[in-house]
Write a protein that binds this DNA or RNA. Structure first.
Lengths: 202, 202
DNA sequence: CGAAGTGATGGGACTTGGTCTCATCAACCG
DNA sequence: CGGTTGATGAGACCAAGTCCCATCACTTCG
């Protein structure tokens, strides 16, 4: 642990690289093998060739090892909404927000997606964290829309519909793969149609 | 602690009554005084004249002391949706669901509402739990709507809009009081108007 | 009327998540 | 060559949450 290693270019490296990624892999595997609650943080760290101290330096808590990088998504969404031409309506901006996240939906990410999702679905604490992340997206988009002058309630509704579309799009992408941008555009359109159909019904 | 007491009718009671309520009060007060994270469960129990063991017999975890009785709300919502006449549209059922919860919005509950809300807003763990509760409402309503034959996506959208209206209605009720049923009806109508306005915009 | 439950509680051991502080040591820099 | 930096290790420490067993007023039943 922490031993010196020779890197590809022959120079000394003090630690094995990619500590964070190793922790994620170890956690995902252990959670799948034994379940989330039967896995101690110390065990994850051990499998990654590290210690508990280091784990908590990389992740705020045990749950967060499964939710890394979601701030990036929120930032992409906010940026896209800010960059949408002034004339466009809120839902156009939301569509842009979802499409903007597509670049993070790589094949590598899709590879451990189902495993990750299965772990999350099987544990209350993790579902709770997932819910919080979605709320985070909704708040981020709501604020970004309000900065465009969209009235508060409309902003909240548009953001909420966007999160719903995002969530369902993520599911489809995991199942079938493909370009997330296209998928999200489709799920958002589906959501809009559902809304229209709701308004018609009495 | 746990001493025998004489009740109003002169008979012996083995424990002070209302242990659960005493724990909630103690928790709310301590959280307000010292903050959520600076308050230990043992301390809450002590102020309530009980012990840590008993606390965890009444609440699954430390957070839950602030969220008691939300299952009741979900049940009321589900029941109201099931009882809505077959011809009615999804949003009518959702309105009935929100109105059905009104009976739990008592003056006594409103009294410690702001205190409770302030505590929750000030702590990430608690905001997380609050988010989960809202998701729980959305899932409950979605399922109830699906059982009425509402297509999956429409059910999800209607439930999500309902939760949004519920949440905002709760805020208004805390501020101004009054009949929650009326308030919820109004916020749901506002949400529907926001939706219509969104659909119009491009 | 006495004996055998019952149920809410107390008490304490134990595991683990999470914090904090200090030590380590290769790489880097002047 | 000596000082600094930065990712790590090590271990003490606290609080959340679980488990198990004891207690004892009240209840029920023979």
């Amino acid at each position: 642990m922490g031993l010196s290693l020779v890197t590809y270019d022959g120079r000394m490296a003090r630690w094995e690289p990619d500590a964070r990624e190793r922790l994620v892999r170890a956690a995902l595997d252990l959670f799948s093998e034994q379940g989330y609650e039967n896995t101690a943080v110390a065990q994850i760290a051990e499998r990654a060739g590290l210690t508990k101290s280091t784990f908590f330096r990389h992740f705020r808590d045990k749950r967060e090892v499964l939710f890394g990088g979601q701030e990036v998504l929120a930032e992409l969404m906010v940026g896209a909404i800010a960059d949408t031409p002034a004339g466009a309506g809120p839902l156009v901006a939301v569509e842009a927000a979802l499409v903007a996240t597509a670049k993070t939906f790589t094949d590598e990410r899709r590879a451990h997606g189902p495993q990750r999702l299965a772990v999350i679905e099987g544990n209350d604490e993790l579902r709770e964290r997932a819910a919080l992340k979605m709320v985070g997206f909704a708040i981020a988009m709501t604020d970004a829309l309000k900065r465009r002058g969209v009235p508060e309630l409309e902003a909240a509704v548009a953001a909420e519909l966007g999160v719903l579309a995002f969530d369902r799009g993520y599911g489809h992408w995991l199942e079938a793969g493909g370009d997330f941008g296209e998928i999200a555009r489709r799920t958002l359109r589906d959501v809009r149609e559902a809304v229209a159909s709701l308004q018609r019904a009495e």
